[in-house]
Amino acid sequence: MTKDDCFYLGTIVSKFSFKGEVQIKLDTDEPETYKHLESVLVEINQKLVPFFILQSNLQRSNLLRVKLEDVDDEADALELIKKDVYLPLTELPELDDDQFYYHEVTNYKVFDKHYGEFGKIKSVDSTSPQALFIIYKGNTEILVPVNDVFIEKIDKANQEIHFNLPDGLLELYLD
């Protein structure tokens, strides 16, 4: 399994005990969804290594304390600190029709209420405080904030997102 088949769940941020428990800082709005996982994939040396979860407990809102199989002591746990944790895409919860995961909208056509079709989504940059759709029209890169106020309609069947963007936003890129 490759990272393309997975989604980022979080990062192992600390050891919890001398028995090899670790804490995963979850990158999700709904951490309780992941309280009872059977396994996770940990990125070690650019490979995804599966670990079975023997026990888990949600600590504070986004910290999942886990006991991983074959991680038996503090030294084993310390080797996993700062490692990213993934799950297969098949583990993502189903969303309503008006919701989407960032990876789902890649290659969606985008339309503005006033401008019409203005490109395709290449990706979503979620590394900044404001997530951004990265859209290309030819060789021009257009950045649009991921904001419910701007999204009028998501058409998953036709792979389209329809916006009502603020005046002047597209003109910054297209004029």
Rank of each mutant, 00 (worst) to 15 (best):
K109C: 02
F163D: 00
I142T: 07
H114C: 09
L95F: 05
K137C: 06
P145F: 11
I121Q: 01
I151W: 08
F111V: 04
K120E: 13
D96E: 10
G138P: 01
F133K: 02
D112V: 09
L169I: 10
E141G: 08
P166I: 12
Y108G: 07
K122I: 09
L132A: 06
D125Q: 06
F118Y: 12
I154S: 03
K156I: 03
F100H: 10
T127S: 09
L143A: 08
N147F: 06
F100S: 04
D112P: 09
A157D: 11
N147H: 14
H114S: 14
F111A: 09
T140F: 03
N139G: 10
I121P: 04
V146R: 08
F100C: 09
E160Q: 15
P145D: 11
S126G: 12
V105N: 00
S128M: 11
F163C: 01
Q130V: 15
I142V: 13
I161H: 02
K156D: 06
V149H: 11
V105W: 04
K120M: 12
V110M: 07
H162K: 11
V110D: 01
I135H: 00
P145T: 12
I154L: 06
F100N: 06
I134M: 14
N147P: 01
L165A: 11
P166C: 10
I142H: 05
V124K: 02
G116P: 01
A131Q: 06
S123E: 10
N107L: 14
Y102L: 08
E141F: 04
F111C: 07
P129Y: 10
T140K: 13
D96K: 05
H162D: 07
V105K: 01
E117D: 13
F100T: 04
A131V: 00
P166Q: 05
Y101E: 02
S123M: 09
F100E: 01
Q159Y: 00
I135A: 02
D97F: 15
E104W: 07
E152A: 09
I142K: 01
A131W: 11
D98F: 14
N158W: 00
G119C: 05
V149K: 14
K156E: 04
I134Y: 07
S126Q: 13
L143M: 10
S128G: 14
K109F: 14
P129N: 14
L169P: 03
P145A: 07
T127W: 05
F111H: 14
I121C: 02
L95W: 09
V124Y: 01
H103Q: 12
N158D: 13
T127P: 00
K156T: 03
A157I: 10
V105R: 03
H162T: 07
G168H: 08
V124P: 01
L95M: 11
Q159R: 15
Y102D: 06
F150G: 01
D148M: 10
F100A: 06
K122V: 08
K156Y: 09
F100V: 01
